[in-house]
Nucleic acid binder design. Structure first.
Lengths: 243, 243
DNA sequence: CCCAACAGGTTGTTTTACCAAGCTAGAGCG
DNA sequence: CGCTCTAGCTTGGTAAAACAACCTGTTGGG
């Protein structure tokens, strides 16, 4: 009875082949050993080899041509897409994990865009939790979380203290709602005088504004996160495959 | 000898189950029939059923819990991410498929950001192909494609005529290079006087600038696409799952 | 010489079979 | 009554075998 569970054989094969590709043993463009060669070398059956190669193909490490063989593409780049999703980190990680101060905690009339994304009536109230995030010793971004009033009852969101768990985890444990997907909008506008002052930015440079509407699996709006970034100091970057 | 090829059985099963989920026959949250039930109903073997269910799980239609069963999540929302990839369409579809005019076709000194993304020396020349795209009867966006000089030899890129095939297809057939992935940067800045005039936009509203650096599988830069959108009339929107 | 047919390699799909791991409900015992 | 444990369900993983589809180089015959 071993307490440490061993990964399945096909997953071990995936890792072994990934290591060989990264080490240059199987350079990009070269042909991978055939299924029969891998069966003999690793002492596993064909379905196991095929399962491992399927995973590698779906992850973008290799491509296959029926009748010819499988060819190395290299380490896939799909992993870094999260970088252009600024709202996501603020939803899942606790507020204590980033350097910043809570600037506003109140129930306010939601701006038109927020009301639309939250699926509430125009000019009606929603709960705002706004923070000024600092990086490298200076103010870097303004992050605002808007939550429908009925979702804030019985939660710690109305406290000015920093949340020790992520917003998603907090709402899930207290209110039983589950974050499923985000509808993200990116736009740009000029900062207000107050925003420019808080962020310490010149008044003639624009703001990048990222809106993330969080929904559950049925499409019900649960929260909206607004991230404001001075365009002269921050950009959004991500990598994705073509096809 | 049938000219029309039939899709594999597991793919047919995938489509059948997708239809049942979309029609509400298998509502979100409900449990899918067990493997044995599907085997009996569709008259296929277990690996075939498992292969279909694996595809559905990887695409986000269902989730599975060992020992309990598989549960419906609903139609996944990952399909619409392409909307926030403005550069991609301009790379794959022919210029004749969008309404617009070619405004510049020349070899110019590349701006600093373009030179960096193309991996060429600062202040060196690259080939520029710039178009003003119109939508709904007015100017909508400026699309600029920068290509290294050596990749333009023997191509039709230097012609002021509209390309009848996508830039990717053109470079692949003429130069043997293959587009693999895109490194995308999103930022905002104020328009130049010329840009504001061409786009018919107020001078005090910012521009959304999307830079897409196209690379092959080895990371070699092949082209850079710059898309300029007036922020008061266009935004970027995409949908992605959490987790 | 050229081209067609073939042989032997490759990956893709499907089947049958068996064991392991996890969950649930009910039987049975204290 | 309450608890434990087991029987029977579920999904997850592995093995062995066969056929189909596709590519390539060779071996022929024309």
């Amino acid at each position: 009875m071993s307490l440490e569970s061993v990964p399945p054989k096909y997953a071990q094969l995936v890792q072994a082949l990934q290591r060989r590709i990264e080490s240059g043993d199987y350079p990009p463009g070269s042909m991978l050993p055939s299924e029969n060669q891998l069966i003999n070398e690793f002492g596993v059956s064909r379905p196991t080899v095929v399962a491992a190669l399927r995973v590698l193909r779906e992850q973008g490490w290799i491509e296959s041509q029926q009748g010819k063989g499988r060819f190395v593409r290299g380490r896939p780049v799909t992993a870094s897409v999260e970088q252009s999703r600024p709202g996501q980190a603020h939803l899942t990680s606790p507020e204590t994990s980033s350097d910043g101060e809570v600037t506003e905690v109140a129930a306010l009339v939601a701006p038109e865009r927020i009301a639309t994304l939250l699926d509430i009536a125009p000019k009606s109230k929603a709960f705002l939790r706004r923070r000024l995030i600092s990086r490298d010793g200076g103010p870097a971004e303004i992050v605002s979380a808007w939550v429908p009033l009925e979702l804030t009852e019985g939660t710690d969101l109305t406290s000015a203290d920093l949340l020790t768990e992520g917003l998603g985890e907090h709402l899930r444990s207290r209110k039983g709602v589950r974050f499923d997907h985000i509808v993200q909008q990116i736009t740009a506008r000029m900062p207000t005088a107050d925003e420019a002052k808080r962020l310490g930015m010149p008044k003639n440079t624009p703001l990048l504004a990222v809106y993330g509407a969080v929904r559950d699996a049925s499409g019900q709006a649960l929260a909206v996160v607004e991230v404001l970034l001075p365009a002269d100091r921050h950009e959004l970057e991500d990598v994705y495959p073509i096809g």
